[in-house]
Design a protein around this nucleic acid. Sequence first.
DNA 1: CGAGTAGAAGTGGTCAGACCAATTTTTCCA
DNA 2: TGGAAAAATTGGTCTGACCACTTCTACTCG
Lengths: 244, 244
Amino acid sequence: MSSPDVPPADPAAEADRVPVTQRAIEQIKAMIADGTLRPGQRLPTERELAAELGLSRSSMREAIRALTTLGVLEARHGAGVYVTALRPADLLETFSVLAEVARGETLVEVLQVRRILEPAATALAAARADDDQLRRLGTVLERIGRDEGIGDTVAADLSFHQAIVEMTGNTTLAAINGGLSSRTFKARVWHGHHEAGVVARLREDHERIYRALLARDPDAARAAATMHVLEVENWLCAHLDDFA
Amino acid sequence: MSSPDVPPADPAAEADRVPVTQRAIEQIKAMIADGTLRPGQRLPTERELAAELGLSRSSMREAIRALTTLGVLEARHGAGVYVTALRPADLLETFSVLAEVARGETLVEVLQVRRILEPAATALAAARADDDQLRRLGTVLERIGRDEGIGDTVAADLSFHQAIVEMTGNTTLAAINGGLSSRTFKARVWHGHHEAGVVARLREDHERIYRALLARDPDAARAAATMHVLEVENWLCAHLDDFA
DNA sequence: CGAGTAGAAGTGGTCAGACCAATTTTTCCA
DNA sequence: TGGAAAAATTGGTCTGACCACTTCTACTCG
């Protein structure tokens, strides 16, 4: 039932199976989880940490690199290693790789998740947005679909959706939804609609969302957001071959 | 407008500001994004990669460690470095750190996201589940709230929710939702309800969800899932001080 | 001839020590 | 007393070595 070729029970050899670097990662992660290390706190130097945890500096650096990648640590050249603020945005930065390397069927799944999150977020935003946020959103909307190059349209598109989810006041929601859409994917969507001569439809999608927000109408906002994601989803399914 | 103390334009010095390890990470990530490296493909050895990208093996290893942490590469001791299958589950494993280190207000945000995702997922499951999946879900449900130790109840609770989101057939959705609930948090919820003598309420929440799925009733499933997450959310807000 | 095994080669994991580059702190002069 | 130069601190990179695990090879034995 248990692992083979393990004689009886093994006291210290058990921990010896797990690589030292991995062990260090888990030790530091545990110290953060149980509050021994607080957000923003400075850690000992790499050399001291290596000595305390009983491994070489190279391996210690690999552990720090892993935790840096996860967004829990931050190394500042010449100034030390620190625990990040542990904000959702810090910890969910890694999330964007999904949108970056996803292809084919996975992209469809990602859009289906967005079709769940964005309508809910947009409805929340309709209920919570203040005049100032809406005014700024209007200026972003104006940049979408103009004839000043697709590059700026894509940037404005990203800003538009990001601004809306941030209106919910839920930074975790904003970080997750932000990680689900990559600039490169949005660029392909706009290019595709441009070649098909239906850029106006995408532009109108955003206008409908904006008007629903202005009207503080959660139901209309939800519907408009759903239709927008659905539009992209349908386009993707029709061009799935190009995303192999 | 641009960065200060940069004389005119700088050709090669621009790339020299970016640490070599970071550059290697981006190069390999780009090769995966553009299809040069395919899922499951084997990479050259660390020594060869280091030589090709023009950096030392130590720095190359740190780059590989970062990409391993992100779930795009996988190093097998003695056997080489490989691109993972790039499944959503591979890329979203890092997601769990959020639930692990989150505390206080962030936990509330996480639950609010779950209150969006879980009802939608449960409604989808109600429409798509087959008899076999439902039968297995029933056996898991029986283990929830028994008097055989909270440990098994927590494990069954996790399995229950995971099984439901997997019924949607959307592995990305399953991976995201899975990362939003940690075993330790669920354990505290059950302990809290146990001490307050309201374990039955949690148990009934799960039964209601199960009955809605059996009835293939998406609306009822959505409502039951919403109420369940709300129950946990309310409990958390009442005990937020314990999660500082 | 084939199966199994022992050895060799290949490859990731760890360690040691050195030097470079950015930051911070200290020192000391104007 | 203010500020600039110098020293100390600390992360970033490189080199080269050795260990542990896997895979391949070739040999031996039935």
